[in-house]
Write a protein that binds this DNA or RNA. Structure first.
Lengths: 237, 237
DNA sequence: GCAAAGATTGAACAGTGTTTGGAATTTGGT
DNA sequence: ACCAAATTCCAAACACTGTTCAATCTTTGC
C-alpha cells in the first residue's frame, strides 16, 4: 500500500476527529445541536477550516448517518448469525429484537437515520448504499424463509406483485443473493420492516412511554405474532 | 356572551393570522423553515411583537401541532363513522386507510406530530391532550371489537397485562368509554397503532418510495392482514 | 380626561452556517 | 536545495436565526 503522504494522513486524522466530536454532540444533545462552530471550538480551530473537510453541515450529518447505518446493519447481521440458518424463526426474532435494542442504545442516530429523511435526504455514498442494501437484505432473508399462513402475503390476496413494482437496482442484488426470492416475498419483506419499525419509532419518539410502562413485552408480543404470521415455527432450537 | 373587547378581538385575530402564516410556511417548507422573523416580515410587523402572542417559537409549533392533532383525530373519527358499529372490520380498515391518507395529505404536519417529539416535547394544553385521547380511543375501539385469533393478543401468550402497566389518566378515560375493555386489549390497541404507523412513517420519511413504486397496495395488504388477525370478519357490509 | 395596562417598535445580543482574501504550510519536480 | 503549485488555516465579514429590552404608541377602565 502506498504510504499515505503526511498531508493525507493528517487530513484523514482531522476528518475523523471532526466526525468524532460531532458524534459526541449528536449523542448528547441531538442532531439539531451539532453546530459547526461548536465543533470548531472544541477542536480549537477556526470555523472556516471545517469547509476544507466537508462541503456543508449536511454533508457531515450524512457521513454520520452512513456510519450509523453501517453500525446498525452489522448489529442486525450479528444478531441473526447468532442462530443457524436451520432456525429461521430464531433468526427473525433476533433481528427484530436487535432492531429495537440498537434504537434504544442509539436513539439520536436512529432519529438521524429515519426521521424526516425525505425532508433533507442524506447524500448516499457507495458505502452508505451498501449498508442500506445489507439492512434490507436482512429483512428479505426473513421474508424468503417465511411460508406465510395469511393469504395476502403470497399473492392469494387481491393484489399481486411483479418485479417491476420494485426498484431495479436493489431487486437485482436481492435476487442474486436469494435466488428463490419472489415479488410477493419482496413486498412482504417491506411489510415486515414496517411492522418492526412502527412500535420502535413510536417508542423512540416518546409516544409509547406515556401510555405504557413497559414497551418491552409489548414489542416482544408483536414480534411473536409477526414470526407466527410468517409461518415460522418457533422451534426451541 | 360578553362582547369581546376591541383589544381582545384584535388579539385573537392576530394570533390566528400568525398561526395561519406559520402553517403556510410549515406546509410549504417544513417545520425547520418556520421562522419568527419570516412570519413577522410576511405580516409587516416587528420581530419582537411576536412575543406578545407566543412565549417562544416552540410554543407556536406546539399550537400548530395541537391543531393538527385535532384535525387528524376528527379525520379518523369521520372515516370510522362512515361505517356502522355492526361492521367493525370496515371501521378498522377505514381508520387505517384514513391514517395514511391524512399523513400523505399533510406530511409536514404528520412529521411535526410524530417525528422526534421526545427531543422537544410539545407543551400539551387541555385541548391537545383531549385530541390525543380521542386518537387513542379510536384504536382502543378497534381493539375492543377484536376477537383476536392469535394467542399473544389476549393473554394466552407468555405475557399478561394488568391495568397498572398503563398510564392511569388515559386508562380511566378508556375504561369509561369502553366498559368491556381489558388490559390485553389495551395493549393490543397500542400494537395496532404501531402496525399502522410503521409503514406510513417509513413512507412519509421517504424510505419506502425508493424501494417500491406503489406503497398503496402494500399498505392495503398489511391492513387486510391486520384486520384478519384481529378476528374481524371482512363482511362485505 | 387620566392613569394603568397592553401592544408595537427598533435596536441590540448571542448564536448559527457559509464565503472570502490572504497568510502559512506541505507537496512534487527540477 | 530550491521554487512553484496546491492545500490548509485563520480572521473577518455576511446574512441569517431566536430572544430581550427600553421606549413609544394605543387601548382600556375608572
Amino acid at each position: 500500500m502506498p504510504a499515505a503522504s503526511r498531508r493525507e494522513r493528517h487530513r484523514t486524522e482531522t476528518t475523523a476527529e471532526i466526525k468524532a466530536t460531532a458524534l459526541k454532540h449528536l449523542v448528547e444533545e441531538g442532531a439539531e445541536s451539532v453546530a459547526l462552530r461548536g465543533i470548531a471550538r472544541d477542536m480549537g480551530m477556526a470555523p472556516g477550516t471545517f469547509y476544507s473537510y466537508f462541503d456543508t453541515r449536511e454533508a457531515l450529518l450524512s457521513a454520520l448517518a452512513a456510519d450509523a447505518y453501517r453500525d446498525l446493519a452489522a448489529h442486525l447481521r450479528e444478531a441473526r448469525d447468532a442462530h443457524p440458518p436451520t432456525a429461521p424463526a430464531a433468526r427473525a426474532l433476533a433481528h427484530g429484537l436487535a432492531y429495537r435494542a440498537w434504537a434504544l442504545a442509539h436513539p439520536q442516530e436512529f432519529r438521524l437515520l429515519f426521521s424526516g429523511r425525505a425532508q433533507t435526504p442524506h447524500t448516499n455514498t457507495p458505502e452508505s448504499t451498501a449498508a442500506e442494501y445489507e439492512l434490507c437484505l436482512g429483512i428479505v432473508e426473513i421474508a424468503t424463509t417465511a411460508t406465510p399462513a395469511s393469504p395476502s402475503a403470497d399473492g392469494n390476496g387481491s393484489t399481486t406483485y411483479t418485479w417491476e413494482d420494485f426498484a431495479p437496482d436493489f431487486t437485482t442484488v436481492a435476487r442474486a443473493t436469494f435466488p428463490t426470492l419472489t415479488p410477493p416475498a419482496l413486498a412482504l419483506s417491506l411489510r415486515v420492516w414496517g411492522r418492526m419499525h412502527g412500535l420502535v419509532t413510536l417508542e423512540i419518539d416518546g409516544l409509547l412511554r406515556p401510555q405504557i410502562d413497559n414497551p418491552d413485552t409489548l414489542y416482544r408480543d408483536e414480534l411473536a405474532d409477526l414470526v407466527r404470521g410468517l409461518g415460522l415455527t418457533p422451534t426451541t432450537e
